[in-house]
Design a protein around this nucleic acid. Structure first.
Lengths: 236, 236
DNA sequence: TGGTAATGTGTCAATTCGACACAATGTTTT
DNA sequence: AAAACATTGTGTCGAATTGACACATTACCA
C-alpha cells in the first residue's frame, strides 16, 4: 500500500475537439477565452474532471454545457501528459472528440461561452498543446471515417449523396469521382431512399436518403473495411 | 484561476499490455501479484506516474523495469477513468501496449517481478478493469496490424514468410491461404530477401527476410491501406 | 531411394476499381 | 416557349486485385 502513499496526485482535465460540417468545409468549435490563464487566446472547450465523475460523463457534461446537446457522438482519442504542458500546474488532459450536426447546437449556450465555429483551414493558434490535439483528432477522423460510417454524424438526418461526398472530400481534402463514390456508398446498402427531394437545390434536386440505423449498427465494423470483425475470444 | 483551486487532484497509474509471439500464439506478459492490493491475483504490469515524468517516459520506465528492454514499440491506447475502478483510491489508468520479440526480454527481471508469459487463450481473470484493457488492446492490435506493418515488431530481425503468416493467423484467429498471403506481403516490397535459410526447419528451409526499414517508415501509412496518407494541413 | 512435409511460384475466373460518357431534371436566360 | 446551363442518376469498359486452387522444389527420414 506504500505505493499509493508516495504517489503524486495531479489534476485531470478534459478537452473536447468538436467537429462540425457547414456543407463545404470542416469546422471546429473553439473558445475565445475570457478567463485566465491565457485570457484572450483561443483554446478548445475543456474543464476539470470531477471527483465523483467518470471520464465519459465528464466529457458529456462539458459538451452539454457548451452546446446544449446530449447523445452526440463522442470518442476518447488520447491523453496528453507532458510535465509542463500546463504552465499553472501539472495537469493531464484526456482528449475527446465529438461530431455534431452544426445546425443543432444551442446558440445561446455557445455565445455565453464565447465560442465560435471556425473553419479548419482558418484555425488560429491555440493555447498549450491544443494544436497538437486538433492534429491528432483530424488524423483520427480520417482513419475512422474510412473504416466506419462515422461521417453521417456530421450530417442532418436526411441528406443527399452529393452532400455526403462533399463531406468526405472535406475530411480527406481531396476530390472524389462522383460516379464511383455513389456506387461505393450505395453498395453498402446503408442508405435508405426517403423518396423526398432536396428542395434547397437550384438545379436538379437530389434524392434525400437516411441511414438504415439497424444495418448501421450491424455494419459498424465492416463498412469499407476488410478485416475480420474484431470479435473477442470468449475469455475476454 | 479559481477553477484550478477547486479541482480534485487524483492518482494516475500506467498499465502496460505486453504482447509477444511464441511462434504459434499470441502471449501476454502478466504479473502474479505478491503485493497488495489484490495480492495473489493476476494483473497487468503497472505503476504510478511520477511527478516529474511524461506519460510516455513513465510507460518506458515501467517496461524497462520489467523486461530490461528499451526502444521497444509502445503506443498509448486509452485512459480508463471509472470512479470506482480502483477500490483503494480514485485512480486514472493510462493504458499502453507494447510489442516485443519474446526472445529478447531479461529473464531475471521478469522473474523478479513474478511475471509470466501466458497464452492469450489461457489468460486468467485479471484484477480491476484489466480484462477490459486487454480486450481493447487486442482490438487495437487487430485494427492496426491490418493497416500498418506492426506485426514485424513481434518477430526477430530475420524471419520467414510462413512465420509472418502464423503471426497474422494468431492475431486474427483465422486461417489464411499460404499463396495469397505470400503474394500480398511480397507486393508491398517491404521485405528484403537476406539470401539465408531458416535452419530450424526440419523440412524445406524457408528463406529468411528482413524489413526494409527505410521503406517501412515511408509506407507506414499506406501499407494495406487505401486512404490518402493523413498529411496534415499547414496550419496544424 | 522413395515417402513425407513444408516452401516457392503460377494460373484462372470472379470481383472490384478507376476513368469516362450520356441521359434526365430543374432553373435561368433569351 | 425554347434554348442554355448546372447538377444529378446511371452505365460501360478495360485494368488491377482477389480468392480458390495445382504443381514443382527442397530437405529430412525411414
Amino acid at each position: 500500500m506504500n505505493r499509493y502513499a508516495h504517489a503524486k496526485r495531479m489534476l485531470v482535465a478534459i478537452d473536447c475537439i468538436i467537429f462540425g460540417f457547414d456543407g463545404e468545409e470542416l469546422d471546429l468549435l473553439l473558445i475565445k477565452r475570457n478567463f485566465e490563464p491565457e485570457k484572450g487566446n483561443w483554446s478548445l472547450m475543456g474543464g476539470f474532471l470531477n471527483e465523483d465523475e467518470d471520464l465519459e460523463d465528464g466529457a458529456e457534461r462539458i459538451l452539454y454545457d457548451l452546446t446544449g446537446l446530449k447523445n452526440i457522438y463522442v470518442e476518447q482519442i488520447a491523453t496528453f501528459g507532458k510535465v509542463d504542458r500546463d504552465p499553472v500546474e501539472r495537469t493531464l488532459s484526456v482528449v475527446f472528440f465529438a461530431l455534431i450536426n452544426i445546425k443543432d447546437h444551442d446558440q445561446e449556450a455557445v455565445k455565453a461561452h464565447n465560442a465560435h465555429w471556425i473553419t479548419l483551414g482558418k484555425k488560429p493558434k491555440l493555447i498549450f498543446d491544443h494544436d497538437i490535439m486538433v492534429g491528432r483528432a483530424l488524423e483520427h477522423l480520417r482513419y475512422n471515417a474510412a473504416l466506419h460510417p462515422l461521417g453521417f454524424e456530421l450530417l442532418p438526418e436526411k441528406f443527399t449523396i452529393p452532400q455526403l461526398q462533399k463531406l468526405y472530400e472535406a475530411i480527406y481534402d481531396m476530390k472524389l469521382d462522383r460516379r464511383n463514390f455513389s456506387r461505393k456508398i450505395l453498395s453498402t446498402k446503408l442508405l435508405i431512399d426517403t423518396g423526398e427531394k432536396d428542395n434547397n437545390s437550384t438545379t436538379k434536386k437530389a434524392n434525400l436518403f437516411r441511414l438504415d440505423k439497424a444495418r448501421y449498427q450491424q455494419k459498424f465494423y465492416s463498412f469499407w473495411h476488410f478485416m475480420p470483425d474484431p470479435a473477442l475470444p470468449e475469455s475476454l
